[in-house]
Simulated scan of single mutants.
Amino acid sequence: MEKRSVFKSTWLPLLFALPQLALIALFFYWPAVAVVNWAFTLEPPFGGAAEFVGLANFYETFADPLYWNSVTVSLIFAIVGPFFAILIGLTLALAVDRQLPGSGFFRVLYILPFAIAGPAAGMAFRFILSPERGLAASLNAIYPDIWNPAKFGSHALALVIIIFIWKWAGYTFIFLLAGLQSVPRSLTEAAAMDGSGPIRRAIDIQVPLLAPTLFFLTVTMMTEGFVGSDTFGIVHHTTGGGPNHATEVMVFRIVQEAFQGLNYSGASAQSIILIGLIMVFTFIQFRFIERRVHYK
Rank of each mutant, 00 (worst) to 15 (best):
F175Q: 02
T172W: 02
A192Q: 00
G266I: 00
A211P: 00
Q260V: 02
Q206M: 15
T72P: 12
V249C: 04
M221L: 05
I254L: 06
G54D: 10
L42A: 12
T231A: 06
F125H: 02
S186T: 14
T61D: 00
R287L: 05
I289G: 06
A17H: 12
G118P: 03
N69H: 09
F226G: 04
A202S: 14
M193E: 04
W147L: 11
A136R: 11
F105A: 09
G54S: 07
D97V: 06
I76T: 10
T72Y: 14
T238Y: 08
I275D: 07
A85D: 01
T91I: 08
L157M: 05
G89Y: 07
G276P: 12
L262C: 11
V35A: 07
F58S: 02
T91W: 12
A56Q: 13
F286T: 05
A211T: 13
R200F: 09
V36P: 11
F62Y: 00
Y29E: 13
R107K: 14
A120P: 11
P82R: 02
V96D: 02
Q270H: 06
T10C: 08
R133E: 13
I272Y: 10
S271F: 00
H245A: 10
I205Y: 03
L187Q: 09
F40R: 13
H236M: 10
A178F: 08
P212N: 15
F84S: 02
N244S: 11
S154N: 07
K167H: 03
Q285V: 10
M250N: 03
P131E: 14
R4N: 09
P149V: 07
Q270E: 14
A39F: 08
D204F: 10
W68D: 09
I76R: 10
V36N: 07
Y264A: 10
S265D: 01
T247I: 01
F58E: 00
F252P: 00
G102C: 03
T282D: 15
V255I: 15
I174T: 15
P243N: 01
V35L: 05
F215M: 02
W38H: 14
R200D: 08
F216Y: 03
G104V: 08
V35C: 08
Y143A: 13
F58D: 00
P131Y: 06
